[in-house]
Write a protein that binds this DNA or RNA. Sequence first.
DNA 1: TTGTATGCGTTATCAT
DNA 2: ATGATAACGCATACAA
Lengths: 339, 339
Amino acid sequence: MRRSPTIIDVASHAGVSKSTVSNVLQGKSNVDATIRERVLQAISDLGYQANAGARSMRQRPKVLGIVVGDLTNPYHAELAAHIERYAAKRMHSILLVSTGGLPDAESKRVRTLIEHRVAAVLFLSSPESETLRMIGADLPKVFVGLTMPGQNSVSVNDYLGAQLAVRHLTALGHREIGFVSAMLADEPRIEEVRFQGFSSGMAEAGLRLCETHLLREKGRALGDGDYQDLIMRLLAREGRPTAIVAALDRIALEVISAADRLGIQIPNELSLIGFDDIAISGHSRIALTTIAQPMEELARLAVDMAVDGISIDGNGMRLAEVMLPPRLIERHTTGRCKD
Amino acid sequence: MRRSPTIIDVASHAGVSKSTVSNVLQGKSNVDATIRERVLQAISDLGYQANAGARSMRQRPKVLGIVVGDLTNPYHAELAAHIERYAAKRMHSILLVSTGGLPDAESKRVRTLIEHRVAAVLFLSSPESETLRMIGADLPKVFVGLTMPGQNSVSVNDYLGAQLAVRHLTALGHREIGFVSAMLADEPRIEEVRFQGFSSGMAEAGLRLCETHLLREKGRALGDGDYQDLIMRLLAREGRPTAIVAALDRIALEVISAADRLGIQIPNELSLIGFDDIAISGHSRIALTTIAQPMEELARLAVDMAVDGISIDGNGMRLAEVMLPPRLIERHTTGRCKD
DNA sequence: TTGTATGCGTTATCAT
DNA sequence: ATGATAACGCATACAA
């Protein structure tokens, strides 16, 4: 029994033609109940399993491609988990590639998705423009958690989220508020929007942006020791901010480390607010106030969009840019300003 | 340009037969350099992308199936990330399914892997025996991070790991050592081995197991509030252990929370050691001493095993049970016993 | 070295 | 209601 049984095997075992077997498999109504039963029996007798590869040559493949920068990033992992779960409900499988942030590798990895003729590609991180070009316009693309000009996306209103963060802080009496976002070189769009929202929130409160309260250096990796140093320098400076908005929970974690090392108490001497609400942020040792992403809804909408396809009018794709409202989760890293 | 170009399109564009194109694609040496160049040009002109589905009918598919219980679990996510990365090096893609711990869903999800004719299945969590039966013996299976009787596996010597943990603790003067492992109902095998190693370590040090220092209740979920209560009860008891071995870093995180709430200082009043060394364990606020899994090596060996296949002798598969040595990473949750 | 013929497992079209 | 047959895109054995 080396090779697995085919519909032909099933057909001959059930004494019918392969067309009939196919009809049963497709749930067509034009097949006699008795015959159907006989076919089903043969299928279970032989342990027949459909061949998705062969099927995909005649039907739309039920596989979704997911492109993620780094699965080690808990935000990505959690989002991918939700997507996988909901995709399964929609009878779709997940072909996952992670680019590792390497620009040249990305193109190669995404190419494998195309070769597998995935029904659509979901981007959890922003791709190189070259990659996008390679994919072409025929393959549906959905950006989840981020926007992309001229592309379908399901994301959260980060601009508003950052405003929420600032409002929360100013309501607590903070006026010297910093923003730290280094290491987001791979997601410049998100970083930019969150910073713009931050700026707008500051302006709204009549506050000025202070250069020494800002840390937006690009090209830093999270593991980078230098990065810790940069944060510590910002925190150690005379007239340091009394509150900080971190562009990511992971960055907030770094700020916490830096503050701990400097003996700066959170939230007594420094308020901190993050973005995304990754799982660990809820832990009692962290208890990070943060702007949460509604991951479940994000995943659901993205998969629906990818599976059902974007409605096509005469001129081509109709753009769908869904934007969900953010939500502030208050925990214990933010408190009233003591100054 | 609705449908994507095929080798036939490439062939006619290059003025050769489709076999020649195929030969070029396969890197066969029996094709003239000039012709090869012409074909390559045609491929790039037309933007030809191979059809993996069609190809998989004639060749061994270059796709690996990964079964993971929960991608939200950072240990799983990190391991999956490493696997994906190395699989890419080996020119293989990853079809990922997560079972969500639901026994009946598992079978369905794994079935999709079979339908896609994956070259092998990698289990990051232990499957139902029914699922295993359904897969049959023809499809190579590799268990990574856990062992399975009669199956190929790449894992870490958890028994030794637990012994290491106990030795570390006894060397620090601890004699009242507890073990907490609830919520591992989905991985009873791992839990069992780690507990056995713990027991053996205790015996080795001439220490007796104390019932009230053990928490091995099954069927608890991590989010479960009751679970926190159970740990707190263990910690609040008179004559509580001075040190605890947690069967997982995630459980250790729960122990930390419980200790914090009870005002028990770590490591001054309680030493704690975990398992797996997930990323967050290295954070300064956690700084968990733990038994690390060599994830990279785990992933590499598992993928190699899956891709290269297990050598087959006359009697069938040759079993490969690779077991890697664990490594203790000492951070700041363990200290000398004060009693 | 290149081209032809065939098979892979499935679905879709068209007769019956 | 059922069956024969033609695609689908590719690789391979074989013929030229």
